[in-house]
Design a protein around this nucleic acid. Sequence first.
DNA 1: ATAGGGTTAG
Length: 669
Amino acid sequence: MIKKKSYQVGVMLRWLVGPICQMHRLLRTTASRGCIRQRHRLLSAVAGGDQPIRDLPPTTCAVPWNRLLCAHICRSRPDLALALYRRMRALCPALPNTYTLPLALRAATSPRIASAIHAHALHLSLHAHPDVAGQLLAAYARHGRPDEARHVFDAMPSKRTTMSWNTLISAYSVCCDPDSAMATFGRMAAAADEALPDAVTWTTLLSAHARCGKHPVVLELFGDMHRSGCEGNAESVAVALSACPYAGDLALGKGRAIHGYGVAKGVVRGYLFVTNSLVCMYGKLGKMDDARKVFGEAGEKNTVTWNALVTSYAASGMCDEALDVLVRMEQRGGMAAPNVVSWSAVIGGFASSGDNERALELFRRMQRRWLSPNVVTLATVLSACAELLAVRLGREVHAGAIRSMLDRHSLVANGLINMYAKCGRVAYARTVFDGMKSRDLVSWNSMLASYGMHGLCDDALAVFADMAEAKVDPDGVTFVAVLSACSHAGRVSEGRRLFDQMILEHRISPSMEHYTCMVDLLGRAGLLKDASELIETMPVGADLCVWGALLNSCRIHGDAAMAEATIAKVLQAGAETTGNHTLITNLYAACGMWDESKRVRVMTREAGLRKSPGQSWIEVKNKVFAFVAGSVPPSMPGAEEIFRVLDDLYSEMDDERHTMEHDHHIVSV
DNA sequence: ATAGGGTTAG
């Protein structure tokens, strides 16, 4: 109770002191210009938080209000600016003018607030004023509301300027709609008498494509920009560089070319954004020497520059070096302290290198620094939890996500679905899925895969139907999920129908994974001939997974002839991996062909191939124990006890089986 | 007292 009260006092003080200090300064600096009485009234209005609003005298001049609004915005306190604007409206509803509304709009932190101010503008008949309309457009654009932005844009009374076109295009960029951005750019070019595209227009267009992964288009547009006679500037060079790593074989060549272009245009040295892009570009392409060189030559560095170096090391698989840089950032202190991005990069680096334990350890360390994770951090951590089956930490992360209201974000929710599914909690996965406000393709695919991996084919098919109902177009991943669900449940006709549907209706050409699913589906059901025929129809040669699926089916159904024929084909195709050799060995053994089995085993050993043993994990009290068949994890507490219970269970199972065999004449396989 | 574009983490 006491704590709450003092908290409230603190909030009030902060609320009041800021404006009052500024008000005093205002009174001092502008006293000679008159309006003293009004300023006194305003001061009492701002300070009189406890007085009933209607008892305060109304002011008639908007200037001091506007000055104060501007001061709050310049100090990055949109909350205080908005509170002041509300107070202004409450005290004197007619006072906001063509300066006030743009200022309030700059402080709008959500599209809802922008809409409310829009309504005020309409009510005050100020919506058509160029400044108000311009800032309305900007506010809607910032929040990625292209429909509202378009509405304002179309209603703008004055001649459209390059700037208003640019703002409209940025609305499409923010909400990841590059096609509409492009279409708008086309309309702008068609209305060339009105306004001509400038460097900002091109940069906006570039970023519209960059931000949603259309990197090849970015590089094309960068060329178009140059060809259209528009000089590349620092901003556009930065975006173009960020797209280079995804250009395939030409990536490094393009990167170096644009680097050179930037040097020629004089936008490399002293332009931090370009420096940062360069470090990251070289790092992503594994050119650590170049990345380090650019980093070293940069005079001024900020957090992003350091993060680019961290990212570069992480992307090159040098996780320990990435961590070293982060530690160096911490020790240096000052302006470039590590932030969420730095930590997420290192955590992600360890996670993608397979060291999920280390990733989670670092997440704990980040929490100890009182840094709040964001959606990217949470997605990364949840994926590590899923890999380690660390459901307790996963639930803890879920709880944290709920507290910070990030749990319904698609990145986090998709991570949660995957984590719960992998940890065997399909029902939780479904709850998260149902609670999402908007589901993307990954959400649907994750849910499908969840049911698939638990053998719940009917549920998977129901989700697939819902997906069609929700008008979400399936992709290749979707079909891998449904086909494998069918395969595990032995739903042959359903699977065949889906495979055809995928090719004919959705125009998705089947990948190796799809063929593997189908061969598995047919093979497991005993349709070995059909499976083998499907392999024959494949446009490209089957890979080891496909052959493996067929061999596995031969083993299940004890078809030695088919197995031998298959093995001949595999060996003929020159397939040489341990996995398959082991499979072949086991297969011969299963068919009773011991000599052949031994022969392959010897061959394997001579080829220097050794299979690393498959591992399993179990999570006990937030700690994950890995074990292989026949071994005891040394750190496992109470291992002896566990094995005693296991022994008891085994003997009970044995008794049970003998009884069953006796009663039902079931012969165990 | 007022406007649009840029780099880093999945």
